[in-house]
Computed example of a mutant assay.
Amino acid sequence: MAPPSGPVRAPEADGVAGARIRTARKEAGLTQQGLSVAVDVSRQTIISMETGDYAPSVYLAIKVARALGVTVEALWGRET
């Protein structure tokens, strides 16, 4: 059975990860549009990640982290 195509909605909103993404994006001096261009997705996808409504693929998570100059764990890792 093939996985569903299209965006994957997070099972529940992850506001912590969204806040981390937003903070890292601003610290990198990027707008939502700028980050979307850097990782080749729509601005709406960036908005959805920042609100915690979108769970990116591993590939996209790596692209976002690299564009922001941080690790994937710094953005989506769980607080311990």
Rank of each mutant, 00 (worst) to 15 (best):
R43D: 02
A24L: 10
R25S: 13
R25Y: 14
G29I: 12
I62W: 11
L35D: 00
A19Y: 13
R25C: 08
D53Q: 15
V70A: 05
V70E: 10
E50S: 13
R22C: 11
V37T: 13
I46K: 01
S36Y: 11
L60T: 14
E27N: 15
T51G: 13
I47A: 14
L68S: 00
L35M: 06
A67Y: 02
R25L: 09
Y54G: 07
V72R: 02
V70K: 13
V72T: 11
G29H: 09
T71V: 00
A67E: 00
V70Q: 12
M49N: 07
I62M: 06
V58A: 12
T51M: 04
R66Y: 06
A61E: 00
P56G: 08
A61F: 01
K26A: 15
S36G: 09
T23H: 14
S42W: 09
A55H: 12
V64K: 05
R66I: 03
V41G: 05
L60R: 12
I46Y: 06
V72I: 05
A38G: 05
L30H: 09
S57V: 02
M49I: 11
A55E: 12
L30N: 07
V58Q: 01
I47C: 11
A17Q: 00
S36M: 12
K26D: 15
Y59L: 11
S42E: 11
V37H: 09
Y54V: 08
A17V: 02
R66D: 12
G69M: 00
V41E: 03
Q33C: 07
L30E: 10
A28F: 11
S36C: 14
A17L: 02
S42R: 10
A61G: 02
G29C: 09
R66H: 10
V58E: 05
T71G: 08
G18E: 05
I21K: 00
A19V: 06
K63G: 05
T23Q: 14
L68T: 00
V72D: 05
K63V: 01
Q33T: 14
E50D: 14
R25E: 08
A65R: 07
A19C: 06
D53Y: 14
R20S: 06
G29K: 11
I21M: 05
S57I: 04
T45N: 04
E50C: 15
V64S: 04
A55N: 07
I47M: 11
V70N: 08
V39N: 01
V70W: 13
Q44D: 13
R66Q: 12
V37W: 11
V41N: 01
I46E: 07
Q44P: 10
I46D: 05
D40L: 10
A55I: 01
V72Q: 01
L60A: 10
D40Q: 10
R43H: 05
T31K: 03
M49Q: 00
L35T: 04
E27T: 14
T31R: 08
K63A: 10
Q32E: 13
